[in-house]
C-alpha cells in the first residue's frame, strides 16, 4: 500500500483521527494551562514563608530564618 495514496480506510476513519488529534491537543493545552496557573500562584513553592518558624533539628530550638531572596535579586547576583 502506497503511503501517499489515500486508502479507503483513511476516509472511513477521518473523523475518528481528527477527533483524537483535537482531543490530544486539548489535553496538552489543559496540562500546560494548569501548570502555568499552579506555578504562577506559587503552589509548587517549597521554600518556607516569612511566618514559618525554623527549628534546629539537633537542639529543637527555633533559629532565625534566612531572609527570602527574590528571584530577581538572585539573577542580579549571578550577573
Amino acid at each position: 500500500m502506497s503511503i501517499a495514496r489515500e486508502h479507503d480506510l483513511h476516509k472511513r476513519r477521518k473523523s475518528r483521527n481528527v477527533g483524537l488529534g483535537l482531543t490530544l491537543a486539548a489535553f496538552i493545552m489543559i496540562v500546560f494551562g494548569m501548570t502555568m496557573v499552579k506555578v504562577s500562584r506559587g503552589d509548587f513553592d517549597m521554600r518556607p514563608d516569612a511566618n514559618s518558624t525554623l527549628v534546629d533539628i539537633e537542639t529543637g530550638k527555633p533559629v532565625e530564618a534566612t531572609p527570602r531572596v527574590s528571584q530577581q535579586s538572585e539573577a542580579a547576583d549571578g550577573n
Binding site: M1, H7, D8, L9, R12, R13, S15, R16, V18, G19, L20
Partner: peptide, 21 residues
C-alpha cells in the same frame, strides 16, 4: 495487511461521534 480492514463493513467503522455518544 489491509485486507483485514476491508473485510469489515463500512457502516461498522466507529466514528468519533460514536465514542462521544
Amino acid at each position: 495487511t489491509d485486507a483485514s480492514f476491508e473485510t469489515r463493513p463500512e457502516t461498522q467503522d466507529a466514528q468519533f461521534g460514536d465514542y462521544f455518544a
